[in-house]
Amino acid sequence: MKLTIIQTGDVPLRLRDRFGPYHQMFETMFDRTGQGFSYEVVFASDGEPLGDAGALEGVVITGSPAGVYEDHAWLPPLRQFIRQAYEKRVPTLGVCFGHQIMADALGGAVRKSEKGWGLGRHSYAVKARPSYMRAVPEVVSVACSHQDQVITPPAEAEVIMASDFTPNAGLAYRNGAALSFQPHPEFLDDYAVALAELRRGDAPDNVVETAIASIATPSHSAEVAGYIGQFFKGR
């Protein structure tokens, strides 16, 4: 199965030499599931055309420093692409910004949260178990890095993961072919720490220190990646 990775932003320049681009993080994550995916990358935030969503086997929309409420020429085509993929039931995954732009395109509300920065490893209660997540534990811990949040999910979405900080952290859509998460299962621990360090001077010091300390909490990222792999393979 070929996954088309829609890259909507990139690793901060100061970290890129150490950690590479976002699409490679997703490729590595999926390769570790052993599902045998192949990949192509569309650099949407650089203006590359998205093409016909209905002709694709699977879609992954990455994180981004952009906000869905900002004025970027590449955002309206991406929203239309998401709606087309949803209508055609092309399996689609969104992570962080991808989670937010999917919600925005399909009728939800997204904004910068008054709660501030979410950094480091956060824990989320599992609220529902789609068929590809039957084995998921009651709580999963995954790294995150965001200020924006899905405030109101689309009517078509069911909340499957939540926390007090991020009440709409995971969404599964009623067409059975769309899934999104606010946290980043593709992040390795050293990148999550480096990203938190990079926020010094922007996020409060106590938030940064708590984020760095949180990485000692065991991660469920590999398990979540496995559920995502099953989501795609089950289509």
Rank of each mutant, 00 (worst) to 15 (best):
F97I: 04
L171D: 09
V139P: 00
P76H: 11
K115T: 14
A213Q: 09
G176L: 07
F97R: 01
A53I: 15
P154W: 12
F232R: 10
Y39R: 03
L195K: 09
A44R: 02
I82A: 03
G234L: 10
V68Q: 01
A162W: 13
L50V: 04
A225G: 14
T166A: 07
G54K: 12
L78H: 04
L198Y: 15
G108R: 07
G118A: 10
H146E: 06
G170L: 04
G54T: 13
V90S: 00
V68E: 00
L198A: 11
M133T: 11
S214H: 08
R121G: 00
E158V: 15
H220W: 12
P154Q: 01
P137L: 07
V142M: 06
E138T: 15
A157M: 11
A157G: 08
D46T: 12
R89K: 14
M161T: 11
V136Y: 09
V11Q: 08
A194F: 12
A103S: 14
F26E: 00
K112I: 14
P218D: 00
V139F: 05
L3A: 05
V60T: 13
A73I: 06
T4E: 02
F232V: 12
V42Y: 06
E223Q: 15
M1K: 11
Y173E: 02
L198S: 10
E57T: 14
P21S: 10
G170V: 07
L15P: 03
V90F: 07
S214K: 03
M102G: 04
T210D: 09
